Amino acid sequence: MEVRYVTTGRPRRVRAAYGTEIQVTHRWAPEEADVIVVPGGGYGRRDGPGVWAEIASGVLPRALAAAPRRGLTVSSLCTGALLLSAAGLTKGRPCTTHHGAKADLKAQGGLVKDARVVDDGDLVTAAGVTSGLELGLWLVRRELGADAAIGVEGTLEYEARGTVWTASSS
């Protein structure tokens, strides 16, 4: 398993909202991925970097709309679900996002569930920031099995909490 940070633009250093820098060395290549995780951020402000700027540019939503294919899971963390929504991927589907953005996600046609992680097969969404731990552990369990997830929990010294809402649990 290989984890890559990717960009639809040219590879470069990306500065996150609070100054964290990430070196992005790979170009967007969804055909090479098994899982895509779309982060959120910047939801509370519309005048700077973040989900609103990405939605306004349209580049990432168009790339996400074209990405789905058999064998690919598209997932989001926090307000990244709004980027999936802008791509048309959440319309009529069970999903979740940060509690402060649920009304927007619902207004855009998502079937919003009050769960930390919602698994609808090839679409997996997670709620607020700390739900990222739940998302990661769920994807490890789903893709690699319970023993692998338990191993990751032990390494992190964190136990998954709550129930993952799955399409089969509706």
Rank of each mutant, 00 (worst) to 15 (best):
residue 16 A to D: 06
residue 32 E to R: 12
residue 37 V to F: 08
residue 20 T to M: 04
residue 37 V to A: 03
residue 7 T to G: 05
residue 13 R to V: 15
residue 15 R to G: 06
residue 19 G to I: 00
residue 27 R to S: 11
residue 10 R to I: 11
residue 23 Q to V: 12
residue 7 T to M: 03
residue 23 Q to P: 11
residue 26 H to N: 14
residue 35 V to K: 00
residue 37 V to C: 03
residue 19 G to H: 02
residue 26 H to Q: 15
residue 7 T to V: 02
residue 29 A to G: 11
residue 10 R to C: 11
residue 24 V to F: 06
residue 7 T to A: 08
residue 35 V to A: 01
residue 38 V to S: 00
residue 19 G to M: 01
residue 24 V to A: 05
residue 37 V to Q: 02
residue 38 V to Y: 00
residue 10 R to V: 13
residue 38 V to L: 00
residue 34 D to H: 04
residue 13 R to Y: 13
residue 36 I to G: 07
residue 33 A to G: 00
residue 31 E to V: 07
residue 31 E to D: 11
residue 23 Q to T: 13
residue 27 R to W: 06
residue 35 V to M: 00
residue 25 T to W: 13
residue 23 Q to H: 14
residue 20 T to N: 02
residue 25 T to L: 15
residue 8 T to K: 06
residue 11 P to W: 06
residue 33 A to I: 00
residue 7 T to N: 07
residue 20 T to Q: 06
residue 18 Y to H: 12
residue 9 G to S: 04
residue 11 P to M: 05
residue 37 V to G: 03
residue 31 E to C: 07
residue 29 A to Y: 09
residue 37 V to H: 03
residue 27 R to N: 07
residue 17 A to W: 10
residue 24 V to Y: 05
residue 31 E to L: 10
residue 12 R to A: 11
residue 18 Y to D: 09
residue 35 V to D: 00
residue 16 A to G: 07
residue 32 E to V: 07
residue 12 R to Y: 12
residue 17 A to H: 13
residue 18 Y to Q: 11
residue 16 A to M: 07
residue 26 H to L: 12
residue 10 R to N: 14
residue 30 P to H: 05
